[in-house]
């Protein structure tokens, strides 16, 4: 009797799991394995496909490749930092300053831009910033400038766009972590003689570290893997690593090289996150809670 129920339960489980398993295996696991295998194959001098690690060595031999990666990673860290600096006051305001009944609607306002696709938002920025765009038009009308300037296709513009795109992923974990901070801790610190800065660095940031780290990881990964924003707002000069991968697959039609880059991106970004976790003395299990 007991084993029968167990058997039934197993069949039921299998029935419901099948679509998920099919999805995972056919569309994610198998292609990844294929790409992984592909990344270790390249043509030899005779033009035959053989096993080799040339694709990976290329990354280190050609400065343009690894420099692009270093640039991408540095900018992604910078974006995560800027996002944090902007998101912390926002999250603090929503959780500690406003009356509780406005908290929901303010959070909703933050979510609102994310109801439209990233593409539309980036084009919105482009309309604002381009040479014949809204901002230039107004500055010219006001007589502050005599000639329009091109604000697009600069690194700073690209970072602006990336920070804007990833704001929400920093604000949400910060709101949840600051919500759990007891107001009386801040008051106690104030009462014991602390000023605004020591409250920030001794009480708020130590308490919020898990949220800061998890927000930073998400922002860092999303920025590193972002293709659209750097490409549209940074233009040809953006030199984002995802563009290198795109070029290998689409322009050079070198799938082997492209997949090697893909796996390098995965491995190196994981390495950066691991170092970040070690430096902030956090563990992944604590951060993803």
């Amino acid at each position: 009797m007991k084993t029968e129920i167990k058997k039934q339960f197993r069949w039921g489980l299998l029935f419901f799991l099948t679509p998920v398993l099919l999805w995972l295996i056919l569309l994610i696991v198998l292609p990844q394995i294929d790409l992984f295998v592909m990344s270790f194959r390249s043509e030899n001098d005779a033009g035959e496909m053989v096993w080799s690690i040339t694709n990976y060595l290329n990354f280190f031999h050609e400065p343009i490749y690894w420099l692009t990666f270093v640039r991408t990673a540095t900018y992604s860290i910078l974006v995560a930092f800027f996002t944090f600096v902007i998101a912390l006051p926002v999250a603090f305001y929503i959780t500690k300053v406003v009356k509780p009944r406005f908290q929901g609607s303010l959070t909703l306002l933050l979510l609102l831009p994310f109801w439209v696709s990233e593409m539309v938002r980036v084009y919105g920025w482009m309309i604002l910033l381009r040479e014949s765009g809204v901002i230039n038009h107004f500055l010219l009308k006001l007589g502050l400038m005599t000639e329009p300037i091109e604000m697009l296709y600069r690194d700073s513009t690209m970072i602006l766009g990336l920070v804007y795109t990833s704001m929400l992923f920093m604000v949400v974990p910060l709101i949840s972590v600051l919500d759990s901070l007891d107001d009386s801790l801040i008051e106690a610190a104030y009462d014991l003689g602390a000023n605004m800065w020591s409250i920030l660095f001794k009480i708020i940031i130590p308490h919020a570290t898990p949220g800061i780290v998890s927000g930073s990881i998400v922002v860092f990964m999303l920025t590193l893997g972002n293709y659209l924003t750097p490409n549209l707002m940074g233009g040809k000069n953006s030199l984002w690593f995802t563009e290198q991968i795109y070029n290998q697959f689409i322009a050079s039609f070198n799938w082997n090289q492209g997949s090697a880059f893909g796996f390098l991106l995965l491995f190196l970004s994981s390495l950066v996150i691991w170092i970040g976790l070690k430096l902030s003395r956090q563990t992944l299990s604590k951060v993803v809670q």
Binding site: A188, G193, K202
Partner: peptide, 26 residues
């Protein structure tokens, strides 16, 4: 100085750091 109803000890610091907090601010 105020002792709070739920004490408001700083959980991110140990006992010594909690007590030293005010002195350090001075």
């Amino acid at each position: 100085n105020l002792i709070f109803q739920h004490l408001a000890l700083f959980p991110m610091m140990d006992v010594g750091e909690n007590i030293a907090f005010g002195l350090q601010r001075r």
